[in-house]
């Protein structure tokens, strides 16, 4: 395959997200402009101007109307996807990290970093269809975990919120009361910072990537570790194929170590694993730095990776990818 290289960001990528139809790809980077691209040919459709800090995460509504972004400028913005207009800004006391729309797009969850003595928080906000009625009030705020909460997503039927972050644990919260329902077994779970979390297409399970050099597959209702994929470098990003029983994980050595060695030693590949057998299938090379973000297109026929090198690479699979035998 010949990947499409997108050089729109001037700083390392942080997050990638396809919309539900799979025709648009949203990219977030440490520069201040989240960008949207056509996923089939890589044309840039537009950028969302208005943030004043690194953008850590984004989510797009089911019908591709609204985009929400969380940024280090202590805000989370809601945008009109098609015009790039900023519709609303949620202000916080500390940098916003993870954002996720609930099923139905009436609620969203936003996590904020610990900042000058304040602990990290998970905010749940109501999202109005008519943005002029949008309020900045949080329905409730969850506090408790120490360290950053790198990802917070909605569980099945919006009944739970799943969060994971620097304290290595995956937690499940009640989405109505904000009470802790369950947390992962520290021995079975990750031993280091959980850097990413991505749900499967049907939302029944999810994958987490951690700096402990592994990615794990979890049941979203029981927080049971189903599978573990081990690799030889810290995992920054992981995604589950919606089409085949594959997962892809990406990472690499620490950004500070990159310039110290040859790029081949850094292992900046996106590694494919068989979801069930936990066996490594292969790797896709290309980035000059660690991979920070991975996303599968919703049809499972292409995936994109974003690296510390500032590039997004969209890979459309060759025909033989679909006939890989284990």
């Amino acid at each position: 395959m010949r990947p499409i290289l997108l050089k729109g960001h001037e700083r390392p990528l942080t997050f990638l997200k396809y919309n539900r139809d799979g025709d648009l790809l949203f990219s977030c980077a440490k520069d201040h402009n989240p960008t949207v691209w056509y996923s089939h040919n890589g044309d840039r459709l537009g950028t969302y101007r208005g943030h004043n800090g690194a953008v850590w995460c984004c989510d797009v509504s089911r019908h591709t109307e609204r985009l929400i972004t969380g940024s280090a400028d202590q805000s989370a913005n809601i945008w009109d996807v098609e015009t790039g207009a900023k519709l609303h800004t949620f202000g916080f006391e500390s940098p916003a990290r993870a954002v996720d729309f609930a099923e139905g797009d009436k609620l969203c969850v936003i996590s904020t970093d610990p900042f000058i003595g304040a602990p990290s928080e998970i905010h749940v906000k109501r999202v109005e269809k008519d943005h002029s009625k949008q309020s900045s009030e949080s329905l409730f705020v969850i506090k408790g975990p120490t360290g950053r909460i790198n990802r917070a997503v909605w569980g099945p039927l919006n009944k739970t919120i799943i969060s994971a972050g620097e304290d290595c644990l995956v937690r499940m919260w009640d989405a109505e009361t904000g009470k802790l329902i369950k947390q992962s077994d520290p021995d079975a779970g990750h031993q280091k910072v959980v850097s990413s979390l991505a749900k499967s297409a049907d939302g029944s399970h999810f994958i987490t990537g951690s700096h402990d050099k592994s990615a794990k597959l979890w049941d979203i209702r029981t927080l049971e570790v189903l599978k573990t994929y081990s690799t030889e470098r810290p995992v920054n990003a992981a995604a589950i194929s919606p089409l085949l029983d594959h997962v892809v994980i990406g990472g690499g050595q620490d950004a500070s170590q990159v310039t110290m060695s040859d790029r081949r030693a850094g292992k900046f590949e996106a590694k494919f694993f068989h979801k069930i057998y936990e066996e490594e299938i292969g790797g896709v090379k290309g980035h000059f730095g660690p991979i920070n973000a991975l996303a599968f297109n919703t049809d499972g026929r292409s995936f994109s990776s974003g690296g510390e090198d500032g590039y997004v690479r969209i890979h459309h699979f060759d025909a033989d990818y679909y006939h890989i035998k284990m």
Binding site: R2, K7, G8, T35, L45, G46, G286
Partner: peptide, 25 residues
């Protein structure tokens, strides 16, 4: 197009198809 993608040639050279064939090794 909107944002920084507006304007002539603004998106030129941003999207490049790799000349290198990449395989799933």
């Amino acid at each position: 197009k909107f944002g920084d993608a507006v304007g002539q040639n603004s998106s030129e050279n941003l999207t490049v198809v790799s000349t290198e064939e990449i395989f799933l090794e």
